[in-house]
């Protein structure tokens, strides 16, 4: 579960100011997105080099 205060703090860290009413409205969408992102933490990616830039050829 995510609350509006946490979202407000995250948004500010990225330089985005959002009124609480807007954050509250966005909350369900954000929670769905965060759930998708959380899946990334469950993947076996230890030791995998990130593709910071795709193939320089």
């Amino acid at each position: 579960m995510t609350d509006v205060a946490t979202l407000r703090a995250m948004a500010r860290l990225s330089g985005v100011e959002l009124p609480d009413a807007e954050l509250t409205a966005l909350l369900p969408v954000i929670e769905r997105t965060l759930a998708m992102l959380a899946r990334l933490e469950t993947l076996p990616l230890t030791g995998v080099e990130p593709a910071a830039q795709y193939r320089m050829l």
Partner: peptide
Amino acid sequence: SRLRMGAFVTGVQYVRAQQLRTV
């Protein structure tokens, strides 16, 4: 709305996604 969603992705999640990209 979509642009604002970028504020809620952490640096670690960005790197995890780039790791998955390699896979």
